[in-house]
Amino acid sequence: MDKFLLQQQVLQRLAEDLQQTEAAARAAHETATHEENIAENKYDTLGLEAAYLATGQARRAEAIREAMAQWRQFRPPAYDASKGIQIGALVCLVDADDRQQQLFLGPLGGSMKLVSGDQIVQVISSEAPLGRALLGKCEGDEVSLQIASARQTFEVLRVH
Rank of each mutant, 00 (worst) to 15 (best):
N41H: 03
N41C: 06
K42N: 13
K42A: 07
Y43M: 09
D44K: 06
D44E: 12
D44N: 14
T45C: 08
L46F: 04
G47P: 02
L48M: 14
L48H: 03
E49T: 11
A50R: 05
L53T: 14
L53P: 03
A54K: 03
A54R: 06
A54E: 10
T55N: 08
T55D: 04
G56I: 06
G56D: 14
Q57R: 15
Q57F: 13
Q57G: 01
R59C: 01
R60G: 08
R60H: 15
R60M: 11
R60E: 13
R60I: 07
R60F: 02
R60Y: 14
R60T: 07
A61H: 01
E62N: 13
E62H: 10
E62M: 08
A63S: 11
A63G: 10
A63Y: 00
A63I: 12
A63N: 06
A63M: 05
I64W: 05
I64V: 01
I64Q: 01
I64T: 02
R65H: 09
R65G: 01
E66R: 15
E66I: 10
A67I: 08
A67V: 09
M68E: 11
Q70M: 13
Q70I: 10
W71S: 02
R72L: 12
Q73G: 05
Q73F: 08
F74I: 06
F74T: 04
P76Y: 02
P76W: 10
P77S: 02
P77N: 11
A78Y: 10
Y79K: 03
Y79D: 10
D80P: 02
D80T: 12
A81K: 15
S82P: 04
K83F: 05
K83E: 11
G84K: 04
G84N: 07
G84W: 11
I85T: 13
I85P: 04
I85Y: 07
Q86D: 11
Q86G: 06
Q86V: 08
I87P: 12
I87F: 01
I87D: 14
G88M: 10
G88C: 04
G88F: 05
